[in-house]
Amino acid sequence: MDIRTFGELIDWTRDLHQNLASCLGHCATANEEERAKALLEYLSSHEAELARIVDEFERQSARNTLETRVYDYLKHNPIETHRTCDQPYAKLDFQGIYGEVMDFHGQVMDLYKTLWEKAEIPEARELLAALLEMEQNESMRLARQIGRMDDL
Results as ranks from 00 to 15, higher is better:
residue 94 F to M: 05
residue 8 E to H: 03
residue 51 A to N: 09
residue 117 E to W: 10
residue 151 D to Y: 11
residue 64 N to K: 13
residue 42 Y to T: 02
residue 131 L to N: 05
residue 60 Q to W: 06
residue 33 E to V: 15
residue 79 I to Q: 04
residue 44 S to A: 03
residue 5 T to A: 06
residue 116 W to N: 11
residue 134 M to G: 06
residue 28 A to E: 04
residue 77 N to M: 12
residue 60 Q to H: 07
residue 89 Y to F: 14
residue 150 D to K: 14
residue 52 R to Q: 10
residue 138 E to P: 02
residue 117 E to I: 12
residue 58 E to I: 08
residue 134 M to C: 12
residue 51 A to Q: 09
residue 106 G to N: 07
residue 42 Y to N: 00
residue 24 L to N: 04
residue 72 D to F: 10
residue 31 N to L: 01
residue 81 T to V: 13
residue 108 V to E: 05
residue 51 A to G: 09
residue 59 R to C: 04
residue 10 I to Q: 02
residue 24 L to Y: 02
residue 134 M to H: 13
residue 49 E to T: 14
residue 31 N to S: 06
residue 16 L to V: 11
residue 95 Q to E: 15
residue 32 E to T: 14
residue 79 I to W: 01
residue 1 M to T: 15
residue 8 E to G: 00
residue 15 D to I: 00
residue 26 H to F: 13
residue 90 A to S: 10
residue 113 K to H: 13
residue 35 R to L: 06
residue 41 E to D: 09
residue 62 A to N: 05
residue 136 Q to Y: 13
residue 95 Q to W: 10
residue 106 G to K: 07
residue 61 S to Q: 06
residue 86 D to W: 12
residue 20 L to Y: 00
residue 30 A to F: 15
residue 76 H to G: 01
residue 92 L to Q: 06
residue 14 R to I: 03
residue 1 M to N: 14
residue 16 L to S: 03
residue 11 D to Q: 13
residue 122 P to M: 08
residue 55 D to H: 10
residue 74 L to N: 14
residue 135 E to T: 11
residue 148 R to S: 09
residue 59 R to T: 09
residue 26 H to S: 15
residue 5 T to I: 12
residue 102 M to S: 10
residue 65 T to R: 06
residue 77 N to L: 10
residue 16 L to E: 04
residue 118 K to C: 04
residue 32 E to Y: 07
residue 55 D to N: 09
residue 107 Q to H: 03
residue 145 Q to Y: 08
residue 104 F to Y: 03
residue 27 C to R: 03
residue 127 L to Y: 00
residue 34 E to S: 10
residue 116 W to D: 07
residue 42 Y to A: 07
residue 130 A to F: 03
residue 125 R to K: 14
residue 75 K to N: 09
residue 152 L to A: 09
residue 151 D to Q: 12
residue 131 L to A: 06
residue 122 P to L: 07
residue 150 D to I: 10
residue 74 L to P: 08
residue 41 E to S: 06
residue 26 H to V: 12
residue 106 G to W: 04
residue 47 E to N: 02
residue 129 A to E: 13
residue 148 R to K: 12
residue 66 L to R: 02
residue 47 E to C: 01
residue 50 L to C: 13
residue 69 R to V: 14
residue 108 V to Q: 03
residue 136 Q to H: 14
residue 83 R to P: 03
residue 9 L to I: 08
residue 60 Q to E: 13
residue 123 E to K: 02
residue 123 E to D: 04
residue 142 L to C: 09
residue 87 Q to R: 14
residue 104 F to T: 04
residue 54 V to Y: 04
residue 117 E to R: 13
residue 137 N to R: 13
residue 121 I to L: 12
residue 87 Q to C: 10
residue 125 R to H: 09
residue 20 L to G: 01
residue 115 L to R: 01
residue 70 V to W: 02
residue 44 S to I: 05
residue 30 A to D: 12
residue 89 Y to C: 03
residue 88 P to G: 01
residue 142 L to S: 05
residue 96 G to K: 11
residue 91 K to P: 08
